[in-house]
Amino acid sequence: MAEPLKIAGYSINSRLFIGTGKFASNTIIPEVIAAASAEVVTVALRRMDINFPDENIVNFIPKGCIIMPNTSGARNAEEAIRIARLAQASGCGNWIKIEVIADNRYLLPDNQETIKATEVLANEGFVVLPYMSPDLMAARRLVDAGAAAVMPLGAPIGTNRGLKTKELIRILIEEIPLPIIVDAGIGKPSEAAEAMEMGAAAVLVNTAMATAQNPVAIAKAFALAVKAGRIAFEAGPGAIQAYANASSPLTGFLRDSL
């Protein structure tokens, strides 16, 4: 059985984190969370629509889940810090996904501003999970800044393109002493399994579920893939060889000569 994931003293059984954006209806979200067996769920913070004050995503997230607000919309560290403090004042806990983006075409994160925001918020007692471009030096600075985990992107947000940054993520997994959670880009369960087999601590999936024809069914498939990938990682896959190596004995053939 796969080991639980430890982050900031929390013990998390499900290594599949999910986002709640872009679903056709919020009413499907409880079913998606159940099918995914997700325990960590991201949300965003926005101005309340004063004409529709009853809309609130938290009403659709089962009690017992860890709610991880993101700082989407922040273009620099200062804005991310403001959003994080607002999120904390809601009383939904002290987890925060730092997301600082100033690029509108590829939505790639600004690692430098992310490091600054991480340092301030970690010092204030937040459990900080920064979304970042997979760069070893930036990841080391996030560790020094007090991050609880590091969340490199697999591909740009919402693209469903898979693990395009695989080799860079592999380096982070090897070198960074914190959980590495692949966030963004994963489009299919097989890609989630691949990340987990490599030793990713968890994956965060949103668009792949929200844009599937059947979000609940694919959430289930992702849960199975993440679990399989983790068990495979813990099992220690065999080494890759350049040449064939027979699986059957090379003696005792049913013939007389070579």
Binding site: G19, T20, G21, K22, F23, N26, I29, T42, V43, A44, L45, R46, R47, M48, I50, P53, E55, N56, I57, V58, I67, P69, N70, S72, L86, A87, S90, C92, I157, G158, A184, L204, N206, T207
Partner: peptide, 10 residues
């Protein structure tokens, strides 16, 4: 006043 609330997000 700024009144903020949670919405779906990833």
């Amino acid at each position: 006043l700024e009144v903020v609330t949670f919405v779906g997000g990833g």
